[in-house]
Write a protein that binds this DNA or RNA. Structure first.
Length: 470
DNA sequence: CATTAGT
DNA sequence: ACTAATG
């Protein structure tokens, strides 16, 4: 009867619908599940049927299923779905790197129904004949499978760890990173750690640099506690530490710090909400800054991001899309309580966000609180004019900033480098055999082939990002 | 290009 | 909502 139980049911329905290839429902169920999980304990029993439908993300259909469950202890909808799909498929789908599409192919093309079946097929070499399944992917699968066998990994391959412990590890890792002498100027943590959730599933680190992001990535890969590199590109790297904890690092130009920190701090729901709100004002927000049409604006501080959408800086602890936007509006402009009022102010444009990096309120160390106008009536102030913008267009965001001064030069990878193999490129971030760093051999996602160090970051980066939909 | 993953 | 890495 607890909310947790219903949430779990909704999650399972979502997974099964994913398996079916259904489009929007899964996310709807997950959203509902998340709000159920986050309900304050007093409401945990969900006594008031009326109140249920008022909850965010829960409408008629879902509230009915909750009612059903409360009265009969069953949700027929779930039972029907369960009959269609063997339960083992869900475990397969939870393997690292395996999603609904792949799972369904296993099932339909090879008749695989559970982890054991997958393992057998793998050993029998059946997977090699599956289109799109080559040595590397098979190897990835083997790893994922072996991990799934050992510890009872609930999902995503990792257990969550308590905040204090996560904090300790983050601090140590950041210290080690700094000590390695990389040219990062800012280095902060983000994600659920910064939001101070009770426990966190992974660590999210953000660094800025004016130099070559790839050298930053490389230094990171060689940190002592790094056991495995899941993936590594020029702006984003994912590793797994010795303890099994996953760490994501993103590297951006200093001008994008605010936007990136905001993005990386989340929560996901908060970000989606913020971005749709921005959309309504004509802005597009991503981790590099803001854009409106051809107009590009830097976001060196988080405040600049929120200000563009008409909000004061919102403390990380409450960025869960659980009413913080509404609360912020009330605080910022008492008298207007509704977000949907496009009425009177529809003609006014959002204030141009900042492009100057001099004052950085609310963007100090993660622990630091901004001068704290949260809930007060002092809204965002005037922002200095941006002095730099994206070169190229949105989508070309590997945002290369051109300092109009001498401030920043965020260099794009050259076309030659991006195409990789060719003549000139400096090659993979993590050296070829023989060029391992001091920290020992270069860790990498997998041995390519079966033995011998190969290029770690096999990334042959993508095509020219300067293409944009209009 | 599609899949997976990330906030 | 919007982006990155990868085969």
């Amino acid at each position: 009867m607890a909310n947790e139980e219903i949430a779990r049911i909704f999650y399972e329905i979502a997974d099964l619908l994913d398996l079916e290839g259904v489009r929007f429902k899964p996310e709807a169920y997950r959203r509902a599940a998340r709000t159920l999980e986050q309900l304050p304990s007093e409401v945990r029993t969900l006594k008031d049927p009326q109140a249920i439908r008022a909850l965010p993300g829960i409408g008629e259909a879902l509230s009915l299923k909750i009612e059903e469950y409360r009265e009969t202890g069953k949700v027929p909808y779930l039972d029907r779905l369960r009959e269609k799909w063997p339960p083992g498929l869900l475990e397969i789908m939870r393997l690292e790197g395996v999603g609904p599409k792949t799972t369904r192919r296993f099932h339909q093309e090879l008749g695989i129904a559970d982890l054991a079946g997958l393992k057998a097929a793998l050993e029998a070499g059946q997977l090699d004949h599956l289109a799109g399944f080559k040595a590397r992917k098979v190897e990835l699968l083997r790893r994922a499978l072996s991990q799934a066998g050992t510890v009872g990994l609930p999902s995503g391959g990792g257990r969550r760890i308590p905040l204090p412990e996560a904090q300790r590890m983050a601090d140590e890792l950041m210290a080690a990173f700094r000590a390695s002498g990389v040219p990062v100027d800012r280095l902060v943590y983000a994600g659920s750690l910064r939001r101070r959730r009770e426990d966190v599933g992974d660590l999210d680190l953000l660094a800025t640099t004016r130099g070559d992001p790839r050298s930053v990535m490389e230094a990171f890969l060689h940190l002592p506690p790094v056991r495995e590199v899941r993936l590594s590109g020029e702006t984003k790297t994912t590793v797994v530490l010795d303890g099994g904890l996953q760490v994501d690092l993103r590297v951006v130009a200093p001008e994008a710090f605010g936007a990136a920190w905001q993005y990386f701090t989340g929560s996901k729901d908060h970000n989606i909400r913020l971005r749709t709100l921005a959309q309504q004002k004509g802005w597009k927000i991503n981790e590099y800054g803001l854009s409106r049409g051809e107009e590009r604006t830097a976001a060196p501080t988080e405040e600049a991001v929120y200000a563009a959408v008409g909000f004061p800086w919102i403390p990380p602890e409450i960025r869960e899309n659980q009413g913080e936007f509404e609360a912020a509006l009330e605080g910022a402009s008492p008298g207007r309580s509704s977000l949907g009022t496009s009425g009177g102010s529809s003609t006014s444009m959002p204030p141009p966000p900042s492009g100057r990096g001099t004052s950085t309120p609310g963007s100090g160390r993660p622990g630091a609180r901004s001068s704290g106008t949260w809930g007060s009536s002092s809204g965002p102030r005037t922002w200095p004019r941006a002095r730099s913008g994206w070169r190229g267009s949105a989508g070309a965001c590997r945002g290369w900033w051109e300092g109009s001064g001498s401030s920043s030069r965020w260099r794009p990878p050259s076309a030659a480098q991006r195409r990789g193999r060719g003549r000139s490129g400096p090659g993979p971030t993590c050296g070829s055999p023989g060029r391992e760093g001091p920290g020992g051999p270069c860790p990498r996602p997998l041995a390519r082939g079966s033995a011998g160090p190969g290029p770690i970051c096999s990334s042959t980066p993508r095509m020219d990002p300067s293409r944009r939909r209009v």
